[in-house]
Amino acid sequence: MAKEIAGLIKLQIKGGAANPSPPVGPALGSKGINIMEFCKQFNARTQEKAGKILPVVITYYADKSFTFVVKTPPVAIQLLEASKLKSGSAEPNRKKVAEITWEQVKQIAEDKMTDLNCFTLESAMTMVAGTARSMGITVKGEFPNI
């Protein structure tokens, strides 16, 4: 029989740096979950992305066990890094603050595919490009053949 789910917690934690302090401590500790066990697993799984802010969704069960899924960094953050910007444009339609290439859009889309619930790479790329435009980032060139 499937285990009874007691709840879900969504956090963003730096890779390799989970510790029992807030918000992890209060969020999990109050439920009777062993926080140290979560930190050990999260940190071991995210050594490759140490220091990057990673969304994590934690499911906890009635028997005090838990599972969690680490997602890739948010699209907006990846776009910022790709375009080497400090921030998005406050007036997206007038000030074009930065540019990225379709190749970069494709890389982010590939990375985010599973989180975006897109069936095709094209639809994921269209979604990423849409976020880029609303942030004031211009996508250069033509949509590539995939």
Partner: peptide, 30 residues
């Protein structure tokens, strides 16, 4: 826009904030 909360988290992450909780109206930073 929704993504501003993500960008704010990234900026705060660079100045010593460690973790974040998403809320419907923004973020909670620690």
């Amino acid at each position: 826009e929704d993504f501003m909360a993500d960008i704010l988290a990234a900026i705060l992450g660079d100045i010593g904030f460690e973790s974040f909780e998403e809320t419907t109206q923004g973020i909670i930073a620690y």
